[in-house]
Design a protein around this nucleic acid. Sequence first.
DNA 1: CACCGAACCGGGGTGTGACCCCGTATTCTA
DNA 2: TAGAATACGGGGTCACACCCCGGTTCGGTG
Lengths: 181, 181
Amino acid sequence: MRADARRNYERLLAEAKKAFDQHGIHTSLDDIARQAGLGNATLYRHFPTRESLLETMLRDSISELGSTARELLATEPTGAALATWVRAAVAHATTYRGLVTMLMDSLKDETSELNNACTSMQSSGQQLLERAQRAGEVRDDITASELFALIAAAAWTREHAPDEAGQVLTVLIDGLWPPRL
Amino acid sequence: MRADARRNYERLLAEAKKAFDQHGIHTSLDDIARQAGLGNATLYRHFPTRESLLETMLRDSISELGSTARELLATEPTGAALATWVRAAVAHATTYRGLVTMLMDSLKDETSELNNACTSMQSSGQQLLERAQRAGEVRDDITASELFALIAAAAWTREHAPDEAGQVLTVLIDGLWPPRL
DNA sequence: CACCGAACCGGGGTGTGACCCCGTATTCTA
DNA sequence: TAGAATACGGGGTCACACCCCGGTTCGGTG
């Protein structure tokens, strides 16, 4: 990669982060390029789609979520481990306004650059979920993809109803316990 | 209202319904007008915003949801009444793709034409919720607006992860029961 | 160190959608 | 049936996503 290309790439990522933080993931891409002092074509050359830009920005924290899952699996008791990881996952999915929706949609879209990010997140949780189910602490009629949907629902609530989101997450986690007869 | 105006108004509503059914609430407004054989200005004159168009289209079914709540309150046992109404509310909020999000956002936006629709939906559920809480069938650390957020979360899931939505709603409803010690 | 090809860049171009403006057409009333 | 009130149409602006291509910069080579 040529030195100028690398420099511009970094600048774009930095500006994109600012813009997404402030305006959510639907911010104008042309604006990001403008703020970086570059033409929009440069942005589109490095990141052909909005998804590919996001994928790059999220790659680190996604894999971190994977490591967290592995650590929790090794060190924490079953129930607490799952709950902790779910909260971390919700926090991750609310990194930028609008992100959850895009993540959820890319899960069904093989062609999306974010598809891998989603499936890897989903399988990170799977280990924790299955262990908790074997221990009888979590109802066993739940699959990994349903757990992911629950996390997404909580994240979406945090975006659109922040005041109610805490309680929603609580209800949702309590619902994970095996149902009473 | 002049006869031609009334006729066009009806046509617009009919086309809007088709378009929203097919493409969700973010369909092109100009297209709706075109399909109705009218200029876009006519549409904007009758419905200055997308929200006002939706408000008109939803008014009937919203008030129907209110009557349903009153009926259930009179005829059904506490727990079942709440559960039934929640399912009806979720169904209503998924009438068109994208609707839940707009409803949720208008709840915090006094100026939105949909604001009334939301608050009225919320208070329809409140009676049922409080009765179930008095009967000890539902945890009492839940407010009406939190119930509304739960319904919205379920509706959003139905839009973005239809396969998982059923189970998510189940988990969510089970979480409404008073938590175990 | 000057050259050259490959890699990279910028800004203007197209298409689409929201929303407005104003000259023209239609409807109601008397 | 005429004139006033009301309503209509379609072209115009603006903002954004995304593409295209002539020009520029880099960095390896003789």
